[in-house]
């Protein structure tokens, strides 16, 4: 593996401290990627009849990159970043989100979702709407609920803002199912959903996302000290490489083994991908009539007349 570097810092000939680890096969032309994603954002909005967009800014690299891309596509004056912390969210997350907002000089708002979440699960001795049954809900359930609370707020605010919600999920988390259905994965469109985490880092470095955001360990921030990589048991470069060869390059298990991937890792990742298939698809509809959406009624999402007037 090579160490990822910001191209600008290479010109001097001396390689500065590297920002992140980049498997060579995942290296992309960031100019082309940026061009395509920015064009995609513009087109999606234009074709839907919208000039504005909004997104939830977590303080992490994915939503930071999307914010920079949206700003490049439609200008900071047409975008809104929502900070949606829960009372246990790390202070660093909020600080990093604010840093992005300051750098882009875009509109922002903060909605603390603690009341919504606590209103259901309860807090301290007080029962919530879910009653005693949800009181001992484990962090994962709470985390999913938080993701859906954020989605609810985003979609409500989107009406007032008059913009579309831009998705911020990356390809790695989508493939292994590390996302909440109808939560963080809910969006009108997603510009970075076909970029692995390692590639998100590359484009983020190229577009100028602050180094401290690129450098820090990715986290769902569901509990203090949580990190994706500890939870998944893989580092992102390892996981991205395995997914790339397994899915994009269609390597068989035997071929993956001979490339040096561990048998347990192959089995585990294959399983994660298979069991999360449902999260990546539109819910199925039983085929009954002559023409059924998604089966034999196939129109582009954006067709003449589909844009908001």
């Amino acid at each position: 593996m090579v160490r990822g570097a910001r191209p600008e810092s290479d010109e001097s000939g001396e390689r500065k401290d590297q920002l992140f680890e980049l498997p060579p096969e995942l290296a992309i032309d960031t100019d082309v990627a940026r061009r395509v994603m920015v064009g995609f954002i513009r087109n999606q909005l234009r074709q839907a009849g919208f000039g504005r967009a909004l997104l939830g800014l977590s303080g992490g690299i994915d939503s930071a990159l999307v914010a920079y891309l949206v700003a490049e596509a439609i200008g900071p004056e047409s975008m809104l970043c929502l900070l949606l912390p829960y009372r246990t969210s790390s202070r660093e997350s909020v600080e990093h989100a604010r840093l992005v907002v300051d750098n882009l000089a875009c509109a922002s708002d903060i909605v603390d979702i603690s009341q919504i979440v606590d209103g259901y699960f309860g807090r301290d001795r007080e029962l919530g709407a879910g009653g005693a049954a949800v009181r001992e809900a484990p962090p994962l359930r709470r985390g999913n609920f938080m993701a859906r609370a954020r989605m609810s707020v985003l979609y409500d605010v989107s009406v007032v803002w008059g913009g579309l919600v831009v998705g911020t999920g990356n390809k790695t988390e989508s493939l292994i199912g590390y996302s909440t259905l109808f939560g963080d994965s809910a969006c009108a469109f997603n510009p970075i959903g076909d970029l692995y985490k390692s590639q998100v880092r590359q484009v983020a470095a190229a577009i100028g996302v602050p180094e401290e955001i690129i450098r820090k360990a990715p986290s769902a921030d569901l509990w203090p000290g949580q990190t994706d990589e500890v939870e998944a048991g893989f580092t992102y470069p390892e996981l991205d490489r395995l997914l790339f060869w397994m899915i994009d390059k269609r390597r068989t298990d035997d071929e993956l083994l001979s490339m040096g991937f561990a048998p347990a890792a192959i089995a585990r990742v294959k399983n994660m991908v298979a069991v999360s298939e449902f999260k990546r698809q539109v819910p199925p509809v039983a085929k009954l009539g002559p023409r059924t959406t998604g089966v034999d009624y196939l129109y582009p999402r954006r067709r003449p007349g589909s844009a908001r007037p």
Binding site: A27, I28, D29, D31, V32, A33, V36
Partner: peptide, 13 residues
């Protein structure tokens, strides 16, 4: 349709 973004290609695509 443009696809297969990779740094190894002459024009990045």
């Amino acid at each position: 349709p443009g696809r297969d973004l990779a740094a190894i290609h002459e024009v990045g695509l």
